[in-house]
Computed example of a mutant assay.
Amino acid sequence: MILTASIRKTNFYNKNLSNLNFVKNEMINKIIGVGVVKWIVKNTFFKFLNQKLKFDRKMNISDVKNIRNEMNKSEIDHLFAFIFVVIFVIVQLYNQKYLLAFIILFVNIIMNLYPSLLQQQNKRRIDKLIFRFEKSKPTK
């Protein structure tokens, strides 16, 4: 989190990291189980973890853009956490602790990679909403 906070103001973060899309196809998202993670986040105690990501139908476009920025922060935090833990997994593999490395990698994928993929999916949906709103906005 310290690393992501330090790079948040850079051009690399704003141009490259804010628009990441590992899986662009919704069918692939469905096949790998992002929908299951979405259901878990919506219907278990995980829904209480990041209250800034609440979406309300009465929101204006600036609120939606703020939610997209918060999603982006959350996504990048999860990605950096995933990379950090993968380094730990590589160390465990080097030390020939294969079962421990597999368990840590499995939990890391579930707790960091899948939430990041879910945020990317939600950001694409929000981008479509923002595009429709800006397209329908009358020009002066």
Score class of each variant (00 low, 15 high):
L3Y: 14
T4S: 05
R8I: 14
K9S: 15
K9E: 15
Y13T: 04
L17A: 11
S18A: 11
S18N: 06
V23N: 05
N25K: 03
N25R: 03
E26F: 07
M27I: 09
N29T: 02
I31R: 01
I31K: 00
G33F: 01
V34H: 01
V37C: 05
V37R: 03
W39R: 09
I40D: 05
I40Y: 06
K42R: 14
K42P: 01
T44W: 09
F45R: 02
F45Q: 01
F46P: 00
K47Q: 12
F48V: 00
L49E: 04
L49Y: 07
L49Q: 03
K52C: 02
K58Y: 06
K58F: 11
K58G: 10
N60F: 04
I61H: 00
D63N: 12
V64C: 01
K65D: 02
N66H: 08
N66P: 01
R68Y: 07
R68H: 07
R68K: 15
E70Q: 12
E70F: 13
M71N: 06
M71C: 10
K73M: 11
K73T: 11
K73G: 04
S74N: 14
S74V: 13
S74R: 11
E75C: 13
D77N: 14
H78Q: 10
L79I: 13
F80E: 08
I83H: 05
F84W: 05
V85G: 04
V85Y: 06
V85W: 04
F88I: 15
I90Q: 09
I90E: 10
V91C: 06
L93D: 08
L93H: 07
L93K: 12
Y98C: 06
Y98D: 05
L100M: 13
L100F: 12
F102P: 02
F102I: 15
I103V: 15
I103Q: 12
I103C: 15
L105S: 15
F106S: 15
F106C: 15
N112W: 00
L113S: 04
L117H: 08
L117F: 10
Q119M: 10
Q120Y: 02
N122T: 13
N122P: 00
K123D: 08
K123F: 08
R124H: 11
R125V: 11
D127M: 05
I130F: 01
I130V: 15
I130Q: 03
F131M: 11
F133A: 12
K135F: 04
K135T: 09
K137S: 13
P138K: 08
